[in-house]
Amino acid sequence: MAAAAAAGAGPEMVRGQVFDVGPRYTNLSYIGEGAYGMVCSAYDNVNKVRVAIKKISPFEHQTYCQRTLREIKILLRFRHENIIGINDIIRAPTIEQMKDVYIVQDLMETDLYKLLKTQHLSNDHICYFLYQILRGLKYIHSANVLHRDLKPSNLLLNTTCDLKICDFGLARVADPDHDHTGFLTEYVATRWYRAPEIMLNSKGYTKSIDIWSVGCILAEMLSNRPIFPGKHYLDQLNHILGILGSPSQEDLNCIINLKARNYLLSLPHKNKVPWNRLFPNADSKALDLLDKMLTFNPHKRIEVEQALAHPYLEQYYDPSDEPIAEAPFKFDMELDDLPKEKLKELIFEETARFQPGYRS
């Protein structure tokens, strides 16, 4: 834990890192770190609560700039109880001085990944967590956004079992017609939660990839272990087919990539493993919904509104309290091709509203 900075004593240090967030945020305490930044909790002297502050230093890398800009653009436009918001952003007053960006968010005690390492969940908890994931996802999908990296560590939890989806750095506007060349190379989302079509096709992607990830998360809540822990690309596919069985001819016809289709045709026939054999203690309604989410063919996979209306979630289902976005989200430009200098300018502009004396 960093010592509390005395008023006016300059930035606090946390594990050798400068955290320049005073005077409003003090009493910093280390939480963890990701690929390009550290997260601390801090005391907000204005709202009198502890908050989470993520320090991001992305400006050396085009990919990190892209992810940072995506996350900020999306989260500043989203407003939903099951999606983490941005409360404040701290950065230098000029673009030349801006080396880091500090993002202030609600402090959540833990995440689903940490929880599943230590606790076996009751059916009631599984049901409530799944409902909140789908409630947040309904809003995301209504904005025409794909999260693309749903996994237990991106689901934040607090002691009252509130759940918030975080990390929109890989999110995209849904565009089933656009052929994202190089899709697989830039697709760094965790393999275990990846839909089979991501490994088999490169053309376009749809909201059904997020539903697949939610199915993987439900299976993990039922058993405290990942359902498809593939060691590499082909191993991942083999794990999936080992449980779902061989795809039907109709399902194979959806695979545009001939090499991928021929690979699947070359494999020995596998039978589907019954879900109640894998999860003998699970609620039968939970397994019915799991089956509809972990469907090989993305066109037959359940959609988020149908999933919310499934009998497993009937005690929570309330369409009048499951809000959607006001308007579909649009990125003005494809960020993939922009140089990091341009992305830095866009991050600077996007964060201006939090600067003292800002006038829109």
Score class of each variant (00 low, 15 high):
Leu237Val: 00
Met221Ala: 09
Gln66Ile: 04
Val21Arg: 03
Ile83Thr: 00
Pro268Arg: 06
Asp167Ala: 14
Cys65Pro: 12
Asp235Thr: 02
Ile95Gly: 03
Tyr30Thr: 04
Lys300Glu: 07
Lys54Tyr: 02
Glu334Phe: 01
Leu290Ile: 01
Pro93Asp: 03
Leu234His: 03
Glu334Ala: 02
Leu184Val: 04
Leu115Asn: 00
Met38Gln: 15
Ser266Tyr: 01
Lys164Ala: 05
Asp100Pro: 13
Asp283Phe: 08
Gln119Trp: 09
Phe168Thr: 06
Ala195Gly: 06
Tyr128His: 00
Phe183Lys: 03
His178Gly: 07
Asn276Glu: 11
Ser223Glu: 11
Glu345Trp: 10
Ser202Gln: 10
Asp100Thr: 10
Ser266Leu: 01
Asp88Ser: 00
Cys254Met: 00
Met13Ala: 10
Ala143Pro: 07
Asp210Thr: 06
Leu313Ala: 01
Ala195Glu: 09
Gly37Gln: 04
Val14Thr: 09
Arg15His: 10
Tyr131Lys: 07
Gly182Pro: 08
Leu115Met: 09
Cys166Arg: 09
Leu241Met: 15
Val49Thr: 11
Gln62Lys: 15
Ile31Arg: 15
Ile240Gly: 06
Ala260Ser: 14
Gln249Lys: 15
Leu150Gln: 14
Arg359Ala: 08
Ile165Phe: 15
Arg172Gln: 09
Gly22Arg: 14
Glu220Thr: 07
Asp111Thr: 06
Pro229Thr: 14
Pro93Thr: 14
Phe59Arg: 15
Pro268Phe: 01
Phe183Tyr: 15
Thr190Gln: 01
Glu341Pro: 13
Ala2Pro: 12
Val14Gln: 13
Leu338His: 03
Leu267Cys: 02
Ala352Leu: 06
Ile165Gly: 09
Leu184Ser: 12
Asn238Ala: 09
Val49Phe: 13
Pro323Thr: 12
Arg301Asp: 03
Ser246Gln: 01
Gln355Cys: 09
Ala352Glu: 13
Asn238Lys: 13
Asp179Val: 15
Thr68Glu: 14
Tyr205Thr: 10
Pro280Gly: 05
Lys292Thr: 05
Val46Gln: 08
Ile209Pro: 04
Thr118Asn: 02
Ala260Thr: 12
Gln17Tyr: 02
Trp212Lys: 10
Tyr128Gly: 00
Lys300His: 08
Phe129Gly: 02
Gly8Gln: 07
Lys99Asn: 15
Ala92Phe: 01
Lys207Met: 15
Phe183Trp: 06
Leu218Pro: 01
Arg79Phe: 06
Asn297Gly: 06
Tyr139His: 00
Tyr64Gly: 15
Glu12Asn: 10
Glu33Arg: 08
Glu305Asn: 06
Lys330Phe: 06
Pro93Ser: 12
Ala325Met: 00
Gly34Ser: 02
Lys73Gln: 07
Arg225Lys: 05
Arg91Val: 11
Ala42Cys: 10
Gln315His: 12
His180Trp: 06
Gln306Lys: 06
Lys231Arg: 00
Phe78Cys: 12
Asn224Gln: 10
Ile89Thr: 10
Tyr102Pro: 00
Ser57Ile: 13
Asn27Gln: 00
Gly10Pro: 06
Leu112Glu: 02
Lys99Val: 02
Gly357Tyr: 03
Asn276Lys: 15
Asp332Glu: 13
His299Gln: 12
Ile140His: 05
His141Asn: 15
Glu12Ile: 07
Leu267Val: 10
Lys117Ala: 06
Phe19Trp: 10
Val39Asp: 00
Arg172Asn: 02
Asn281Thr: 14
Asp235Ile: 06
Ile95Tyr: 05
Ile83Val: 05
Leu237Trp: 01
Met98Glu: 04
Thr26Glu: 14
Arg277Ile: 15
Asp291Val: 14
Arg79Asn: 12
Ile90Gly: 02
Ile90Leu: 08
Lys300Thr: 05
Ala9Gln: 10
Lys330Asp: 03
Ser29Pro: 03
Thr110Met: 09
Leu75His: 15
Arg148Phe: 10
Ala92Arg: 04
Ala195Thr: 04
Ser284Arg: 03
Ala3Ser: 14
Ser360Ala: 14
Val104Asp: 13
Val14Glu: 11
Ser248Gly: 02
Lys151Leu: 06
Asp283Thr: 02
Asp235Met: 03
Asp20Cys: 10
Gly22Gln: 08
Pro274Tyr: 08
Pro298Gln: 00
Ser284Asn: 05
Pro280Glu: 11
Asp321Cys: 04
Glu60Ile: 02
Leu234Ala: 13
Trp192Pro: 13
Tyr131Val: 06
Gly245His: 06
Leu69His: 04
Glu250Asp: 13
Phe129Gln: 06
Arg77Thr: 06
Asp283His: 08
Arg353Gly: 09
Ala189Glu: 12
Asp210Lys: 10
Leu258Tyr: 09
Val51Ser: 11
Val46Phe: 14
Asn87His: 09
Glu341His: 11
Leu218Asp: 05
Tyr205Asn: 14
Leu115Lys: 00
Thr94Glu: 04
Asn271Ser: 00
Glu71His: 03
Thr295Asp: 05
Asp337Leu: 10
Asp162Ile: 00
Arg359Val: 05
Lys300Arg: 12
Ile302Trp: 08
Ile198Tyr: 05
Lys270Ile: 10
Ala195Leu: 08
Ile90Met: 06
Glu60His: 12
Glu81Arg: 04
Leu107Ile: 11
Asp288Lys: 05
Pro298Arg: 05
Asp111Pro: 02
Lys151Phe: 01
Glu109His: 01
Ser142Cys: 04
Cys166Ser: 15
Phe296Val: 12
Lys54Phe: 01
Asp175Val: 14
Arg172Pro: 08
His269Leu: 14
Ile56Leu: 14
Leu290Glu: 06
Gln306Thr: 05
Asp162Asn: 14
Ser142Leu: 11
Glu33Ala: 05
Gly8Tyr: 08
Lys330Pro: 08
Leu76Asn: 09
Asn158Ala: 08
